[in-house]
Amino acid sequence: MRFKIPISISIVIGVGFIVLLGYFIDLPILVVMRQVLLQWAVALAAVALLVGLANLFNVHIRKVTERQKGAPYSLLLIVSLVITFGIGIIFGPTNEWSLWIFNNIQLPVESSLMGLLAVILVFASARILLRRVNLLSLVFLATVVVMLLGAAPILGFEIPGLHGSNGLRALIAQIPAVAGARGLLLGIGLGTIATGLRVLMGTDRPYGG
């Protein structure tokens, strides 16, 4: 019985092993190959960005031509995309026109979304007990309240035991928060390695092989 491995899988596994070994073994040829392959990946990601933009354009053109729900917003997106892309291509990304668009349109819009985010998070924290009534939710909410109250003096007054370098806020931030974060990061690290190894072994194929 002949065992066939598709070309795409062979390329992924081969390239993956070269890059992985290049991290651990300091052989000049491996290091050079790793750098070259990573540079190719960066170039391909840039091309993928253009393909993604073309996809975004197509999706919204279709919404406009088929007069789907929200078509005026799609038209606005297309016009904005064409103008921004055109100015970026013709004058460059650091030209005053490009910077004007960034500073006067994109930045204020994103800042307002950040403001909205603050309100949403306050409501979400308050609603957490409606969704999940358990000990962890209570601990979460209590911690949020302690951290917020301890962030700054209240009307100029510092509450003993809450504020200051020996207060409850500092204690939570320095010990349980750091310990919890490290535990989560270890789990994420192990999960990341496991996923990477499955791709290297050819069992996870997010690339059409």
Partner: peptide, 28 residues
């Protein structure tokens, strides 16, 4: 704080095993 069903820590990476995406997911 916001999601109906949150996945904390490495639970996200266990998704394949729980959705029966293949024996290698469970093995890893």
């Amino acid at each position: 704080a916001t999601s109906e069903q949150p996945l904390i820590g490495e639970e996200l990476y266990a998704t394949g095993a729980y959705l029966k995406a293949g024996p290698m997911h469970l093995a890893s």
